[in-house]
Design a protein around this nucleic acid. Structure first.
Lengths: 172, 172
DNA sequence: CACAGTATGTAGCCTAGGCTACATTTTCAA
DNA sequence: TTGAAAATGTAGCCTAGGCTACATACTGTG
C-alpha cells in the first residue's frame, strides 16, 4: 500500500485557468449533479452526499418492518427509542416517510409500510447482512462490524454489493 | 389490511418495560447518546449519525490539503468547484472549519490548514487509501471502489480500519 | 491607470434532522 | 366508569448544508 494512487489525484493545475463561471447555471432545480465543469470528483462527492440523505429513511423503513414483524405493530415511541431520538423527531420523519409513499399511518394508529416501503426494507435488510458478513469475512471484530455496518451500508452501491456477494460466496 | 389494524391492542408486548419517561431527561445538553432504555441499537444508530456530521469537514480538510500540496494554495472557488457546491456554500463551510480550529483564512487570501487540520487531512487520506484498496482487494470494480469509498470512508472506525489493514497485508 | 471581469464575501431563504415544551388522545387499572 | 399515566401529536426553535441574488475586492489587460 505504498504505490497506490494516493486517492483522487486532486492535482489538476489549480484554479488560475478558470475562465467561465457564468452564474452557476440558472437551471437545475434540485441543485447541481452535473455541472459541465469537472464531473469527475464533483459528481462523486455529490453522490456520496445525496446517498446520505436517504440513509435515515432506510433506517426507519427497516426498523418499522422489523417492529411489525416481531411485535405486530410499529409505534412512534418505539421507533424513537430504538433509534435514539426524541419522539417528535420520529413523528416528523414518519411524516416524511408518508409524504414519500413509503409508509401509511393514521393518528394514534401505528405506522405501516406501503408496498414500496416493504420492498425497500427488504433491500436494506439484505444489504445490511451482506455488509456485516463481508466485514466479518475480512477480519473485522463482530462488534465493530455491526456498528460500522450501520453507517457503511447506506453508501454501498449495487456494483459494490454484488462484488461483496461474490467475495463471500468464493471465500466462504 | 383487513385484520385488526387498530395497532395498539396486539403489542402491549412491545412497549412493555418502559416505566419511566419522566420528561425526556432534562439533562444532556447535546441530546441523547445514552438513554437507559435500549442502549444497544440506539447508540449504534446515533454513532453512525454523528459520524456523518464530520464527513463534510473531512472532505474539505483533505481537499484543501491536496490543493495546497499541488498548487500551493486553496481558494474557495476551487474548493467549491471540486466538491460540486456553490461558492457561498464552500465559504460557509470554511467558516465552520475556522470555528473548529481546523483551518485559518483571511479574506481574499486563501485557506490554510492548522496543525490539527493537517493531521486530520493525513488521517483521512490514509484511511481513504486503505478503504479503496480493500474494496479492490475483495473484487469491487475500480470505478465503483473509488466512488463508494468517498461515502464509506467516513464511517470506518479505527477497529475496522485496522482490520482492513491486516487483511490487505495478509492478502496481498 | 483604469475598468471589466473574476473571485470573494454577505444576506436571506429552504430542507432535513434534532430538541423541548405543551396539548390531546388512548389505555388501563382502581 | 373514570381519571391518571403514557403515547401521540403540535408548535417553535436550532444547526448543518445547500442555493440564489447581490455587494465588494482583486487583478490583469488594454
Amino acid at each position: 500500500m505504498s504505490e497506490s494512487p494516493r486517492g483522487r489525484s486532486i492535482g489538476r493545475s489549480i484554479g488560475r485557468s478558470l475562465g467561465r463561471t457564468p452564474k452557476h447555471t440558472p437551471e437545475s432545480p434540485a441543485g447541481r449533479a452535473e455541472l459541465p465543469a469537472e464531473p469527475t470528483q464533483a459528481s462523486r462527492f455529490g453522490k456520496a452526499r445525496t446517498a446520505q440523505s436517504g440513509a435515515l429513511m432506510e433506517d426507519y423503513v427497516e426498523l418499522i418492518s422489523d417492529l411489525i414483524g416481531t411485535g405486530g405493530e410499529a409505534r412512534p415511541t418505539d421507533i424513537a427509542r430504538r433509534l435514539g431520538v426524541s419522539h417528535p423527531t420520529a413523528i416528523k420523519t414518519i411524516a416524511r416517510l408518508k409524504r414519500e409513499g413509503l409508509a401509511v399511518a393514521k393518528p394514534y394508529r401505528g405506522v405501516f409500510l406501503t408496498e414500496a416501503g416493504e420492498f425497500l426494507a427488504e433491500r436494506v435488510r439484505t444489504r445490511h447482512r451482506i455488509v456485516v458478513d463481508l466485514l466479518l469475512a475480512v477480519g473485522v471484530p463482530a462488534e465493530a462490524a455491526e456498528q460500522d455496518a450501520e453507517g457503511l451500508e447506506h453508501h454501498v452501491s449495487d456494483a459494490t454489493l454484488a462484488a461483496f456477494g461474490r467475495f463471500l460466496r468464493r471465500a466462504q
